[in-house]
Write a protein that binds this DNA or RNA. Structure first.
Length: 272
DNA sequence: GTCCAGGCATGCA
DNA sequence: TGCATGCATGGA
């Protein structure tokens, strides 16, 4: 990855296999808004960002080299060799088709807590509604970090939020789930830092101790929040597309099932 | 009005 | 272990 810093912005050139709009809007993250033809605005790790893509060039506005190195390069996985990974996934004909149709979807390295919380809310919800709820939560309980921009609230920030509060904000029956997640993390019963280091099976089992977290939400948390590329969330859409794989997942997915899953998710939502 | 959504917990066989 | 059902809500 090559980049240069000037005038308070970072310009990264020669970025291969990257589609900013698809990556920010494919249903893995819910806090990015399009604010121009090629420009998006959002917050991650308590840090606001405006970002623009022009071909294979990315421009990060109002940031510094330090913040770029510490937060945004890892968040967008700019050092990951996507061309090599996608070439391998393309050995599968259906995935090759999905990649050709929607090239440049990347996995975002999101915060574990935010990922866990938002995917607990995601069950039997549309992506649009998830976005609305998550942004309401951030605006009400998160620290303001810019004009109309809020950090996602920490478990500490949410410690006094009642079930009635969650209901009032539209959580529906998931109110108790969200409260349980906050309580477990605050009490240390769920240790997200420790889970990060566990083997996949154990990490999943730990997450599933939280009420409202089943296998699918756990896999989403592992994939999007812990960068476990071998995690494979199965929702209603993936369930449908799995009929195309009666023998199970192809060997070429090995180690990157989660990235393959994100392409299949896009393919299924747009084509089925 | 009807159907559905990045599911899960629970009860029952 | 596997299947059926209820769950809140708003977008399409």
């Amino acid at each position: 990855m090559e980049f240069r810093a000037e005038n308070g912005q970072i310009t990264v050139t020669g970025v291969a296999c990257f589609n900013l709009a698809l990556t920010l809007d494919c249903g893995q993250a819910f806090r990015w808004e399009q604010c121009g033809a090629k420009t998006w605005r959002g917050v991650a790790f308590g840090t606001p960002l405006t970002i623009c893509q022009n071909g294979d060039t990315l421009i990060f506005y109002d940031t510094t080299e330090g913040v770029f190195r510490d937060i945004w390069a890892p968040y967008f996985m700019l050092d990951t060799d996507y061309p090599a990974i996608l070439a391998r996934l393309s050995q599968d004909p259906l995935l090759a088709q999905a990649i050709e149709q929607w090239p440049g979807i990347r996995i975002l390295a999101q915060e574990p807590w935010e990922t866990l919380f938002t995917f607990i809310f995601s069950s039997t919800n549309h992506i649009k509604r998830i976005r609305g709820f998550v942004n309401r939560i951030a605006a009400r309980y998160g620290r303001q970090v810019g004009e109309g921009l809020f950090a996602f609230p920490s478990p500490e920030d949410l410690k006094d939020v009642s079930r009635a509060d969650y209901r009032q904000m539209g959580a529906g029956y998931r109110d108790a789930f969200l409260q349980d997640a906050v309580a477990r993390v605050l009490s240390g019963k769920t240790d997200l830092e420790a889970i990060k280091k566990l083997p996949l099976e154990e990490a999943r089992a730990q997450l599933m101790q939280i009420s409202g977290v089943g296998k699918k939400v756990a896999e989403c948390t592992l994939l999007f929040g812990f960068q476990r590329m071998e995690a494979f969330p199965v929702d209603r859409w993936i369930e449908r597309i799995l009929r195309s794989y009666p023998e199970g997942l192809p060997a070429c997915f090995q180690g990157y099932e989660g990235l393959a899953q994100q392409y299949l998710f896009q393919y299924a939502r747009m084509n089925l």
